[in-house]
C-alpha cells in the first residue's frame, strides 16, 4: 500500500488500516513503525504495558495527536477526521466531569457531524440520543448532571454518545477502566451486539484475564508491534512475555493460558 498506488483488498476492506505509524514526543518514539490492519467485523483488543503507546496509537490514527510518519486508511480512503464511519470513545478520565452539562447533552454531542451551525437540536435528535441511552440502560439518567454520575455511569454515557454516531468502527480507549463489574458486563453486551450487527470494535484493554472472553483479535503492542492476529493463536506465553518484557510471573501466565479456551462461547 506504499505510495497509495495499489491497496491490497485487505486494506480496502478494513475499517482502519495503519501502515508505518510512528509518533514521538521529544524525539523519543512512543509508537514506532506500527502496521496493523483491523479485520472487519472483529472485536480487537490492543494490549500492552503502561506507556506502550496504546492510546497514542489510536489518537494518532484518528488525527488527534500528530504523527511523524504513517498512512492511515479507513476502508481504503485516507482518514481526514471527518469520516462518519469511525466513532471514538476517549478515556473517561480525559474530561472534566464538572462541566455544566446533562447526560442527554453529552450524548447529543455524538450528532455533531449531523448538525450544521444554523440548525437547532430538534426533537428527533434528542430521540436518537435517548434511544442510545436506552441501549446502555441509562435513559432514567437523561436529565442528570454529568458530575453526579459514578465512573461506570460516565463510561456508559460515553458509549451512548458513540452509539449515536452509528459508525462502522468504534474505537474505545480503556472502556473498562475503573468501572464496576455490572457496568463491565453491560458494556461488553452492547459491544457484542454491535459486532453481531457487523460492526467492528477496537479497544485498548488492560485486563489480560478477560482478553479471551471478550475479544477475537489481538494486537500486542509495546512501542513496536509485537504480534497481531486471532486471539487463539496470538495470545501465547511467548508473545505476552515479549510484550511485557518478561515481567509476567509463571503462575500468572499459567492462569491466563491454561484454562480451557473459552473464547467465542458467549458470542
Amino acid at each position: 500500500m506504499n505510495g497509495a498506488l495499489h491497496l491490497s483488498d485487505e486494506v480496502v476492506a478494513s475499517p482502519l488500516a495503519i501502515h508505518g505509524l510512528t509518533v514521538s514526543y521529544d524525539h523519543r518514539p512512543v509508537v514506532h513503525s506500527v502496521d496493523f490492519i483491523t479485520p472487519p467485523g472483529s472485536m480487537t483488543a490492543i494490549v500492552g504495558p503502561n506507556g506502550a503507546g496504546k492510546s497514542t496509537l489510536l489518537k494518532a490514527a484518528l488525527g488527534i495527536t500528530r504523527r511523524l510518519t504513517g498512512d492511515i486508511r479507513v476502508f481504503g480512503k485516507p482518514y481526514d477526521g471527518r469520516s462518519r464511519r469511525v466513532a471514538y470513545v476517549p478515556q473517561r478520565s480525559s474530561v472534566d466531569w464538572d462541566f455544566p452539562a446533562t447526560v442527554i447533552d453529552v450524548v447529543t454531542m455524538g450528532l455533531f457531524r449531523d448538525l450544521r451551525w444554523w440548525q437547532l437540536t430538534r426533537r428527533h435528535h434528542r430521540d436518537k440520543a435517548m434511544e442510545s441511552l436506552g441501549r446502555v440502560g441509562m435513559e432514567a439518567f437523561a436529565r442528570r448532571q454529568i458530575g453526579e454520575l459514578s465512573g461506570g455511569q460516565q463510561q456508559r454515557v460515553f458509549l451512548a454518545r458513540a452509539l449515536t454516531q452509528e459508525a462502522d468502527l468504534t474505537i474505545l480507549d480503556e472502556p473498562f477502566a475503573g468501572v464496576d463489574a455490572a457496568t463491565e458486563k453491560a458494556i461488553v453486551e452492547v459491544l457484542k451486539t454491535l459486532r453481531r450487527q457487523g460492526r467492528t470494535l477496537l479497544c485498548v484493554h488492560h485486563d489480560l484475564a478477560t482478553v479471551r472472553d471478550y475479544f477475537d483479535h489481538l494486537l500486542l503492542l509495546n512501542v513496536h508491534r509485537i504480534a497481531a492476529g486471532p486471539v487463539a493463536t496470538t495470545f501465547t506465553a511467548q508473545n505476552l512475555q515479549e510484550t511485557y518484557g518478561g515481567r509476567l510471573g509463571d503462575v500468572q501466565l499459567l492462569r491466563l493460558l491454561d484454562e480451557a479456551p473459552r473464547e467465542s462461547r458467549e458470542c
Partner: peptide, 15 residues
C-alpha cells in the same frame, strides 16, 4: 462546547 468539554472527541468528529 465540544472543544471545551472533550477536545479529543472533538478532534475525532472533525470539530
Amino acid at each position: 462546547v465540544l472543544a471545551s468539554f472533550d477536545a479529543d472527541f472533538a478532534a475525532s468528529v472533525g470539530a
